[in-house]
Amino acid sequence: MKRTIEILLILLALATTAFAQGIFERQFRYADSLFKAGKYFDAITEFKRLMFFDSSGVYKFTSEMKIGLSYKAGGKENEAVKYFSLALKSANGEGEKFYAGTQIIRTLILSRKTDEALNLITQFLKTADDNQKNLLLYWRGWAFMFANRWQQAAKQFSELNENELTNLCKDVLNKKYSVNFVKGMSYIIPGAGQIYTGHYLSGLMSLGWNVLWGYTTVKAFLANRVFDGIMVGNLLWFRFYRGNFQNAEKFARQKNIEIYNDAFGYLENKFKGLKP
């Protein structure tokens, strides 16, 4: 009789564990179905519920990753990184660690926290195998692109034989304006930089003002009206001359951002490869 009870107790324990496992598995499937349906806010609730009740921690890593991915899908990068970091902490084995790590890197790239992403890539490169290395270097290329370091990005992608991305970076490098060159043009001929960047009217008007006040200033000095010359030169000519090259610089930067955004638009909509 005593033995019977013992067996019964063991069976009871086994059965409850199996029962509990069933419950958690079901909860996981439910949460995951919400995740797959794109109901990220509710998916997070259900993954949190799963983690709260599953004291064995079987679903901890996966749940944290899924919560991170949900936040990422909702554009909440800080929260995503936080949960990926928790997942990294509860990861079992190198594979899981690498998966969580790359997700952190990808999210950091997206939120343009380039230095943090690059630091992390360097950390992971130390222990990575060849496949992992290539993937990490690929993300390094993306980190460079998102930081507008197109030269470095082009170099990185060409080393990895990623032709499409290499060409995209080179294209940006070809198209983009050198801010200093444009500014320099306007130093020499007022309005030239503006015209070069396609702002014809602004360039011509700058040229006009500079010619007018330059002429007035010079004329005043030639006629020995030194006070007038200093006043006009200082308050008007210099003012418009400075505005002229400030505008040249501003337009060059604006144009560059347009060029970068064209490239980012391509990456966002047309590029078919792996994206952050």
Partner: peptide, 10 residues
């Protein structure tokens, strides 16, 4: 009955 319980329930 005991062993089938989890299955019935799930």
């Amino acid at each position: 009955l005991f062993l089938s319980l989890p299955f019935v329930l799930s």
